Simulated assay, not measured.
Amino acid sequence: MDTVDHPPAVDGLTDTQVDAYLARIGLPRPGRPSPAALAELHRAHLGTVPFENLAIGLGEPVVLDPGALFAKLVTRRRGGFCYELNGLFAELLRALGYRVDLLGARAFDGDRPGPPFDHLALRVDLAEPWLADVGFGRFSHFPLRLDERGPQREPGGEFILVPHADDELDVLLDGRPEYRLGLRPHRLADFVPTCWWQTTSPDSHFTRSSTCSRLTRDGGRITLGGVRLIRTGPDGARTEEDLDEAGALAAYREHFGITLDRLPVPPAPAARPRPEDT
């Protein structure tokens, strides 16, 4: 893969913030950067910090600033969607000595990719480049080798990275395209306009329904979509349970560590969530 020009580094997390972040995901401070350490951080993040869009239905702003993201994800023990989750995870990795770039991607809806900056993923450079992504809902449990063009089988399924253009790759899961990944590095501020659209437009699926989801210890998923609790086992077996308001609030506390005094109310009409959200 061609060498890329990396954006200049910015002031990162303090040692105290790093320790708090690692405590949030239940890990001690790792040793030097390595593929094994990166995989452990990635898997722990997916199992503790949920993919969620509750801020929209609660009327809270989504601010793409490392300080605001740390306050939300670590101090307040919330989750977020791709810009927030991968944006702050990049800061943690950099503070731990990893070389990280933010990459823009276009999530597929059927056979059509979405708009530029529709998704944010991470390139992590070690002896070889890796694709890390803790912000796409159902996806890989561990980082993927960015230079590998053959199948990569892991607990999340079989992934293949297919060249689309000189600076793009299509990321396929079990033969289905998930997103078209651009390979040019960006700054977090580059994602702000699309993030604003995702959180405000009635055409965005994020404004139509509330979701909160994380990976479970056994490799399945648990998702609260509106007031429907969905449990998916590692074998794909799925159960659903409709809850009342009190039950949904209790489920946020029990399964995601999120305490709310009211349920989020999406501003746009409800729509069926995309498969990666569950």
Rank of each mutant, 00 (worst) to 15 (best):
L131I: 08
Y179P: 00
D19T: 13
R221I: 07
V4W: 13
F256D: 00
L126C: 08
R208F: 05
T75W: 05
R272D: 14
E84P: 03
S204A: 09
E91I: 09
F117M: 12
N86A: 09
N53Q: 07
P30W: 12
G114D: 02
A270L: 14
T239H: 08
G26C: 11
A68F: 05
T200H: 15
A37T: 08
D19P: 01
R29H: 15
D242S: 12
C82V: 05
A165F: 02
P234D: 06
P115N: 07
C212S: 06
Q198T: 13
E276H: 15
A105S: 14
D19M: 09
L172C: 08
D15Y: 10
I222A: 04
P266F: 09
E158H: 08
R94Q: 12
A250C: 08
F81D: 00
H45K: 07
V162H: 11
T239Y: 05
A237V: 10
L249G: 03
L96C: 09
R138G: 03
S201L: 08
T48N: 10
M1S: 14
R123N: 05
R180D: 00
F108W: 05
H164G: 11
D5V: 13
F206H: 01
F136P: 00
G26S: 11
P266N: 10
L183Y: 08
F117E: 00
R29P: 04
P30S: 08
L73W: 02
L41V: 12
A68E: 10
D147C: 05
D5R: 14
P35R: 03
D235F: 11
G150F: 13
G220K: 03
G157L: 06
G110L: 09
Y179W: 10
L41C: 06
G67F: 07
I258C: 06
A246P: 01
V265P: 01
H42W: 10
L88G: 02
D11C: 13
D244F: 07
R217T: 15
V74A: 03
E241L: 14
Q152D: 03
W130C: 02
P264K: 04
V4G: 03
F81A: 00
D170H: 11
R262K: 13
P50T: 06
L183H: 07
G233D: 11
C82Q: 01
P115E: 10
H45F: 12
L120S: 04
D65E: 14
G157P: 05
A37G: 06
R112E: 15
R214Y: 06
L88S: 02
G104N: 10
Y98C: 01
R262F: 12
P155H: 07
R99E: 14
R43I: 11
H141M: 11
T200A: 06
T199E: 03
H141L: 10
A237T: 13
L58P: 01
K72W: 09
A23R: 14
D15P: 05
H205L: 12
P151S: 10
G114A: 09
L169P: 01
A71P: 01
D244K: 03
F89G: 00
L58A: 07
D2Q: 15
S201D: 12
P177A: 03
H164F: 11
P163F: 11
R176S: 12
G137M: 01
G137C: 00
I222E: 00
L122W: 05
L46R: 04
S204V: 05
E148D: 15
C195E: 00
